[in-house]
């Protein structure tokens, strides 16, 4: 019976990511490679932060609750900073790789644009971080029990799934904005990405008041989405054109399989 919860939560957490992967990434091998490389970079950042965490817990006083809480906050901040550092490292690497690809390529244009790379690598980061945040919870959602015997909220699984969905999408948006900012050397935008990442992570300290963490996260998600949309070259005009379908000629003229 609780298989329903498992599938429900899986679809919520990974539904958008799977859809994006199927329609925009799976068909192009180069994008798949960059996606996996992005996921790998996120994993390396995780490894480093967990190493630091492991060592610091060993040397801390395990009986002091306050110290442990402080350590947790330190760990979160450190991990966010490490993740963003690795995002930057990945950007630098991709720039190098792209130059290399260009020299190899017979065409005179790049096989993949830096904007596409931003999107693909962001999604790679998102996939991996989403998987790490929710897999354990999904494993326990199979049942037979549900959370609550110690008085916790029943909606633990549902809110975890929604949080994961937000994290995956946020990583995608952060990727787009971050790479765009790096391209244009707008360092304040990079700082904005890091700060919003920090805020979202620290919001989860609000748990188990799930509303208090989910609502602000989704507000940030929405804002980041708009920013990423503009950063990726979208505009209100384009959106209008799309929605009002006045673009038939334009579409016909430009349509090419992606």
């Amino acid at each position: 019976m609780t298989a329903a919860v498992f599938f429900g939560c899986t679809f919520i957490a990974f539904g958008p990511a799977i859809a994006l992967f199927l329609f925009t990434i799976a068909r192009e091998p180069l994008r798949v490679i960059f996606l996996i490389a992005g996921a790998f970079f996120w994993l390396v950042s995780l490894l480093l932060s967990s190493l630091v965490w492991f060592i610091s817990v060993q040397i801390s006083n395990k009986d002091s609750a306050a110290q442990q809480k402080g350590l947790l906050i330190f760990g979160v901040v450190l991990s966010v900073l490490l993740q963003e550092t690795f995002r930057f490292a990945y950007y630098k690497l991709l720039k190098k790789a792209n130059e290399g690809l260009l020299t190899l390529s017979q065409e005179e244009t790049m096989p993949i644009s830096i904007r596409q790379l931003a999107y693909v690598s962001g999604l790679g980061f998102g996939f991996m971080s989403g998987a790490f945040s929710v897999v354990n919870i999904l494993a326990d959602s199979v049942g037979p029990g549900t959370v609550g015997i110690h008085g916790d909220s029943q909606h633990y699984f549902l809110s975890s799934a929604f949080m994961t969905m937000a994290i995956i999408l946020l990583h995608m948006f952060w990727g787009v904005v971050f790479f765009d900012a790096c391209e244009k050397q707008r360092w304040w935008a990079v700082a904005a990405v890091v700060i919003s990442h920090l805020i979202v992570s620290c919001l989860t300290f609000q748990n188990p008041q799930y509303v208090a963490s989910l609502v602000p996260t989704y507000v940030i998600l929405f804002l980041m989405g708009i920013w990423a949309f503009y950063a990726a070259g979208g505009s209100l005009r384009n959106l209008k054109l799309c929605l009002t379908c006045k673009d038939k000629d334009f579409l016909l003229a430009n349509h090419r399989p992606r």
């Binding site: 817990v57 947790l72 748990n207």
Partner: peptide, 24 residues
């Protein structure tokens, strides 16, 4: 696995619990 979805919190617990009983 720790409290909800905070991935960073989680990841640390993940590695931690592989080696030790979880702290916090």
């Amino acid at each position: 696995s720790p409290g909800i979805t905070l991935p960073r919190q989680l990841l640390m617990c993940f590695f931690l619990s592989l080696s030790l009983a979880g702290v916090g």
